[in-house]
């Protein structure tokens, strides 16, 4: 086999498919083995120590009756899980998580697509608008949370003042759990909408111009062109956004922590796990069980998405 064909074969195989079995431990393979380790090992070790080790530690802790701060703990098997799923905690926390995730992901993606369409218009000023819309995404969650807390403040906030001026008393955003959740969702979408918009914009701009022109020539109207051509062609983008926004939404923390420190109404899985250990309960074992549940959900979501995507989404 000539050097060239070998190279071609390898490049071809490595760009898309799992490579074919080949005889092991030829000199070449061994060298590649070492090259791989040299390149990847530092990162892999860091991930093992600072991501996997804590993950497994959490699984261990989840079987313990352990008060944070105490030096001793008791092994209790699956009791923490039983407590979680057997009490009101599970429906409350899972429900909050579902509402938060579905709304933040759904609204960010739909609005993101609409904003992307607006940004895609051939008018002046889109460059500025594009930057402006994206800007909140890069800002500190702590800072953003504080600014919006002040705006939502029912006493002196700008929103309360606006509502008063049209004769409405400000809702008790911080005291009523459903409103607190609404508030955090609004701010979360405000902060992350730009990301969806920019990614969708890129998707729109990368649509093949000839296809769009051909469709226009065939007499398809703008709405039809969008629904039957743009949207399907955007499916890789949509998938990419779906996976990233679901993952980040399930892990949303800073805004909830800053805006609703008690987590009443906003106790998503991640926040409940945090509150159980580091809030005033100090149930480190119980908290670990909740994080394991969260991890399992994240895992399932990803596996489902990957399966779905392998079949349905077409890749360029």
């Amino acid at each position: 086999m000539s050097e060239t064909t070998k190279a071609r074969r390898r490049s071809a195989s490595s760009t898309s498919q799992p490579e074919r079995k080949r005889p092991r431990f030829s000199g070449r393979t061994r060298r590649d083995f070492l090259v791989f380790l040299a390149l990847a090992l530092p990162n892999l070790i860091l991930i093992a120590v600072f991501t996997y080790r804590p993950l497994f530690a959490n699984i261990q802790y989840s079987f313990l009756d352990w008060t944070l701060g105490s030096k001793t703990a008791r092994y209790i098997g699956f009791e923490n899980y039983a407590t979680f799923f057997g009490s009101d905690d599970a429906p409350r926390v899972l429900g909050t998580t579902a509402v938060f995730t579905v709304l933040t992901v759904g609204v960010s993606m739909v609005l993101g697509l609409l904003v992307a369409l607006a940004l895609n218009a051939k008018v002046r000023g889109t460059t500025f608008a594009r930057s402006a819309v994206f800007a909140p995404y890069v800002l500190s969650g702590v800072g953003v949370g504080l600014v919006w807390m002040f705006i939502f403040d029912p006493g002196y906030g700008a929103l309360a003042w606006f509502l008063r001026s049209i004769g409405i008393a400000s809702p008790q955003w911080f005291n009523e759990p459903p409103l607190a959740l609404t508030m955090v969702i609004i701010v979360y979408v405000w902060k992350n909408l730009g990301y969806c918009a920019i990614v969708y914009l890129a998707g729109l701009q990368s649509l093949p111009a000839d296809v769009m022109e051909a469709a226009a020539l065939d007499g398809a109207g703008a709405g039809r062109r969008f629904l039957s051509i743009s949207l399907p062609l955007l499916s890789p983008t949509t998938f990419f956004l779906l996976i990233t926004t679901i993952l980040s939404s399930l892990q949303a923390f800073d805004l909830i922590r800053i805006m609703t420190p008690l987590g009443s109404g906003t106790s998503t899985l991640i926040y409940e796990a945090y509150m159980q250990a580091f809030g005033s309960y100090n149930r480190a074992g119980y908290s670990a069980a909740i994080s394991v549940v969260l991890f399992a959900i994240l895992l399932v979501v990803t596996v489902v998405q990957i399966r779905f995507v392998e079949r349905k989404v077409h890749y360029a």
């Binding site: 093992a48 996997y52 080790r53 497994f56 313990l64 105490s70 030096k71 001793t72 703990a73 092994y75």
Partner: peptide, 22 residues
Amino acid sequence: GAGTTAAALSACGGPDTSGSSA
């Protein structure tokens, strides 16, 4: 296998579960 390694790594730190309540 990778999991087991990580589990072994995680054994350090954390509370004492031997039951001798100190």
